[in-house]
């Protein structure tokens, strides 16, 4: 079959297109980030400002906030394309669907995940994170947030055609996020006690590789269901 352009070209075209659109609507990048910072700020107000307590809960707080921010921002991953019909054109195009959704998810991660990783050490500073934990924090976020984006995209693809998908989306996605959360926070805790944490990192990396290879197919299948 005549494809027109190569797989790599299709991948980059879509990636660049999504980034361009997002840069034109800057709110989409900054709102999840603001949400992330605000949630983290709420915790010292809620549990009290004792430095020991804060440094104890910092890894969990930062990760839970990152998780919620990623889920909130994901909701818009396919929404605009779905409502203006672009998604349908994507499904009809001769390019393989998994490659295209992978490009969309990676673009989304570059726009929302990377800023989150950059700002996380700053929040760690505010929460009095153990000085040994910063490396673990950044590396778990760098390996973990793409997993969140990929798994979350499955849920988003399943609910994109529904009118009230918001609450349902959290019910579908959050259970799948839990393993990432468990290993990431235990890695940061281990680093805070000067213990080796490469085991946990290896497991998160394994999840990343697994979801990177399998999730695009699940997302593609879900999109075909939703746009039927």
């Amino acid at each position: 079959m005549e494809r027109g352009i190569s797989f790599t070209q299709a991948f980059w075209t879509l990636l660049v297109r999504d980034i361009k659109i997002a840069i034109r609507h800057r709110g989409d990048i900054f709102n999840p980030l603001l949400f992330f910072i605000l949630v983290v700020t709420l915790f010292p107000l809620g549990v009290g400002p004792e430095p020991q307590m804060l440094s104890r809960i910092a890894p969990g707080v930062i990760w839970v906030a990152a998780l919620l921010a990623s889920m909130l921002s994901l909701e818009r991953l396919f929404k605009a394309d779905y409502s203006d019909g672009t998604l349908e054109q994507m499904l009809l195009s001769p390019q393989p669907l998994p490659i295209m959704v992978l490009a969309k998810v990676i673009a989304h991660w570059l726009l929302t995940g990377v800023p989150l990783i950059i700002i996380a050490p700053l929040l760690g500073l505010l929460l009095n994170l153990e000085s040994g934990s910063y490396g673990a924090l950044i590396s778990t976020l760098a390996l973990g947030t793409p997993v969140l984006s990929l798994l979350g995209a499955i849920g988003v693809a399943l609910t994109v055609g529904l009118r009230k998908g918001g609450v349902l989306l959290s019910l579908l996605i959050l259970p799948l996020y839990i393993p990432v959360l468990i290993f990431a926070t235990s890695a940061i805790d281990a680093a805070g006690m000067n213990l080796p944490y490469d085991g946990q990192l290896a497991i998160i990396a394994a999840m990343l590789v697994g979801s990177l290879t399998l999730a695009p197919f699940a997302i593609g299948a879900s999109l075909r269901v939703s746009t039927n």
């Binding site: 849920g155 399943l158 609910t159 349902l168 019910l171 299948a221 879900s222 269901v225």
Partner: peptide, 20 residues
């Protein structure tokens, strides 16, 4: 269960819930 219940078309609902 929630995903299966939220689609009107039960053929699609089963497909979506199955993927999950």
């Amino acid at each position: 269960i929630a995903l299966y219940a939220s689609f009107e078309d039960k053929v699609l609902a089963a497909r979506a819930a199955g993927i999950l």
